[in-house]
Simulated scan of single mutants.
Amino acid sequence: MLETATADREKSVQDRRNRFGMRFGDPIFRILTLSFTILVLLILGGVIAILLEGSWPALRAFGPAFVWTASWNPVTENFGALVPLVGTIVTSIIAMLIGVPFSFGLAFFLTEICPHKIRQPIAIAIELLAAVPSIIYGIWGLFVLAPLFQHYVEPFLIATLGDVPFVGVLFQGPPIGIGILLAGLILGLMVLPFITAVMREVFLSVPPVLRESAYGLGATRWEVAWRVVLPYCRTGVVGGVMLGLGRALGETMAVTFVIGNAHRLSASLLAPGTTISSALANEFTEADGDLYTASLVALGLVLFVLTFFVLAIGKRLLLRNTKGTLA
């Protein structure tokens, strides 16, 4: 009887706790999460407001033509965002062309081919690359890769591809080492650990029975990767690629070291150039005059809008892939 009474009392206490949690805990949790959401939106709105306020003199002076104007002359106070905008897009595309295939190969190797004894050490080593400061990548690129590019890589590209119709225009000019191509390569190496880590995790989420069934039907490793693994986790793969692209678009110090920082628009990937982030890093402390400062802030606004559209496109792709998977 005593044990029964004790159990009933404990059950009654637990019931009261559950009712209290449902009565007060859920509303409090809902209010807290809503507050965090509103706070994030307020911070985002504050960033947009500050960018608009700081860039308004430049937007008022140059109008929408600021985006497609190539001139950048602080002496005559004539500014345009086209050169750094093109540099940002081109270096990011090069980074994706380098980083995504290598990341896919590394992730598939670590999950499907690599021996178990060395799988985890290699994965940790790749992920540690993400912890290397960007300025280290920039110094390494300037003092190690730039001389190699100047003496070996760029002369080879000029000699082999420089005279090819349509493609040759991308590989013309003197081999000076630093430039758009080297900056894109550095960015590709920087985004590689981020994309690889995400792809590896999503590849591990594929049920083993799917792989074993494909291998049992006689599929090769490439067929398993392309027709089984990738379709199953394409949403996560797209998310990893978007994460790497966002990293490439906003990188500053590493690009500043190796891109040449020249406000000149050239069709050659070997020529020096600039990006929005490197232009801000180089010139913000030297900006003299309200219009010069406002133009730099306007560059930041252009980068913000560009990143927003890239992430929106990535989200659109994720939603479409999710719907296709569910269908």
Rank of each mutant, 00 (worst) to 15 (best):
R119V: 00
R119G: 05
R119C: 05
R119K: 13
Q120W: 15
P121D: 03
P121K: 07
P121F: 01
P121A: 03
P121I: 00
I122V: 13
I122K: 10
A123R: 08
A123C: 07
A123P: 05
I124F: 15
I124K: 14
I124W: 14
I124A: 15
I124Q: 15
A125E: 07
A125C: 11
A125T: 10
I126G: 06
I126C: 09
I126T: 09
I126Q: 08
I126Y: 09
E127I: 07
E127Y: 10
E127F: 09
L128K: 10
L128M: 11
L128V: 05
L128F: 09
L129P: 02
L129V: 09
L129R: 12
L129M: 13
L129A: 12
L129Y: 12
A130E: 02
A130M: 07
A130Y: 06
A130L: 05
A130G: 07
A131T: 11
A131M: 08
A131E: 09
A131F: 07
V132S: 05
V132Q: 04
V132N: 00
P133Q: 02
P133Y: 06
P133G: 03
S134P: 08
S134G: 12
S134T: 12
S134W: 08
I136D: 05
I136F: 10
I136A: 11
I136M: 11
Y137W: 00
Y137F: 07
Y137N: 00
G138F: 04
G138M: 00
G138V: 00
I139K: 11
I139D: 06
W140A: 03
W140N: 04
W140G: 03
W140M: 08
G141N: 03
G141D: 02
G141P: 06
L142D: 02
L142Y: 05
F143H: 13
F143W: 15
V144R: 10
L145S: 05
L145A: 04
L145W: 05
A146R: 07
A146T: 03
A146F: 02
A146S: 13
P147V: 07
P147H: 11
L148R: 14
L148K: 14
F149C: 01
Q150R: 13
Q150V: 03
Q150A: 13
Q150F: 06
Y152I: 15
Y152F: 15
Y152W: 15
V153C: 04
V153Q: 02
E154I: 07
E154T: 06
E154A: 05
E154F: 07
E154S: 09
